[in-house]
Computed example of a mutant assay.
Amino acid sequence: MQGPQRYIAHLDLDSFFVSVEMLNNPSLKGKAVIVGGSADRGVVTTCSYEARKYGVRSAMPMKTAMKLCPHAILVKGTRGEYSRYSRWVTEIIAAKAPLFEKASIDEFFIDLTGMDKFFDPYQWTIDLRNEIMETTGLPISFGLASNKMVAKIATDEAKPNGFLFVQPGMEKEFLAPLPVNKFSGVGESLHSKLNQMGIYTIQQLSNTPMTLLEKILGKSGADLWKKSQGIHEGIVQPYHESKSISTENTFEENKTDVAFLLSELVRMTEKVAYELRQDGKLAGCIAVKIRYPNFDTTSKQIAISYTLRDDELIPVAIDLFHKLYQKGQPIRLLGVRLSELTSHKLQGSLFDETDKKDDLYKAIDAVKNKFGKTALQKARTVKSPEKDNPTKG
């Protein structure tokens, strides 16, 4: 027996960082604006549509972008503001949507399956988009379809600041004329291979026997063929169940040495930040947990600007510890948790001094991946031999 007709909406804030900068500085409206790193070594995080007309694109080296569009206004970016607006939009969606996923800082999926008994999913999404625009002032586009993949591609086609509904059963027809690199995962190399096979459009891909695609491209050939038929089974991951990354230590002996406790806190924050980067995520919230010998447990959390960096997380963790800790009391367990996890394709370029610091973190993580997570540690986390080695709880 067939289940109810699926309806998935994909919402994407248009040129999100640029839009926020324009709200905060209206003189930028209608101009070629580039948000990103330094003019020497930086990369483009995003740019206005006026800059895109000159060929400027996300992830492009800033030097190239400034050659293409020398009159562009370069903005370093205000990450705290992006976090604030992202949370604002999330709250509006959370108040209305039955089930939604925050796919990144500026992108959402909403599952409206079964809701067509009560309202028209298309009109509902139009109303939600209007509310977001009227409340925040941000432009936002959406695609509505029977699955996540088609909804996301529909959003791309609807941009800038538009919307598109691909009716159930029309997926293949909608995809047919589009170039094959509209599918995520079709990078330059795969795109070139497909072109060599005479496959330029999704229709040409769907007309190619799956066995031939599999023979030439392996497993990705079968996946691509399935996508070309408009088939995609990915589910909307509920945001309220968004995973967190945490670690905690139960000490063999209760601890009162604050210097030791802080070094442990720093070590644990480094550990969860490393795991965060390995998952390609940003964290928007950090919590510290303390348990005393009588098993009284207390924790405190704080919302932060989305980050993946040790040097931004550690001072907040230390501050939370000092606010929580009952001075002089021995501690049985200490823990750190990162939550409100989200991703961004160009997460590194969200940051000031992006190039040097991101290169440093990549180098540190590469050493940890090769030689183990404890291969590099901050000086304050390196314990002298006579210190206890805490067991993981």
Rank of each mutant, 00 (worst) to 15 (best):
S206A: 15
S206I: 04
S206E: 14
S206F: 08
S206Q: 15
N207K: 12
N207I: 01
N207Y: 07
N207Q: 15
T208N: 04
T208V: 05
T208K: 12
P209M: 02
M210E: 15
M210G: 02
T211I: 10
T211E: 15
T211W: 06
T211G: 00
T211M: 06
T211H: 10
T211P: 00
L212A: 13
K215I: 01
K215R: 14
K215Q: 14
I216W: 00
I216T: 11
I216R: 12
I216C: 02
I216E: 15
L217R: 02
L217Q: 06
L217N: 04
L217V: 07
G218D: 03
G218M: 02
G218A: 02
G218W: 03
G218T: 03
K219A: 07
K219Y: 02
K219V: 11
S220G: 00
S220F: 00
G221N: 09
G221H: 06
G221F: 06
G221Q: 07
A222N: 05
A222C: 03
A222Y: 01
A222I: 01
D223Q: 11
D223L: 05
D223C: 01
D223V: 08
D223T: 12
D223M: 04
D223N: 11
L224I: 06
L224Q: 09
L224H: 10
W225M: 03
W225T: 08
W225Q: 05
W225F: 14
K226G: 00
K226M: 10
K226W: 03
K227D: 01
K227R: 15
K227H: 13
K227P: 02
S228R: 05
Q229L: 14
Q229Y: 03
Q229P: 07
Q229M: 13
Q229K: 14
Q229N: 09
Q229G: 05
G230H: 05
G230W: 03
G230D: 12
G230M: 07
I231S: 04
I231L: 15
H232L: 00
H232T: 04
E233F: 10
E233M: 02
E233G: 13
G234I: 01
G234F: 03
G234L: 06
G234A: 15
I235Q: 13
I235H: 07
V236D: 09
V236S: 11
V236N: 11
V236E: 10
V236W: 09
V236Q: 11
V236P: 13
Q237F: 04
Q237K: 14
Q237H: 09
Q237Y: 06
P238N: 09
P238E: 11
Y239C: 06
Y239D: 15
H240S: 08
H240R: 08
H240Y: 09
H240C: 01
H240A: 05
E241N: 12
E241L: 12
S242F: 00
S242Y: 01
K243P: 04
K243D: 14
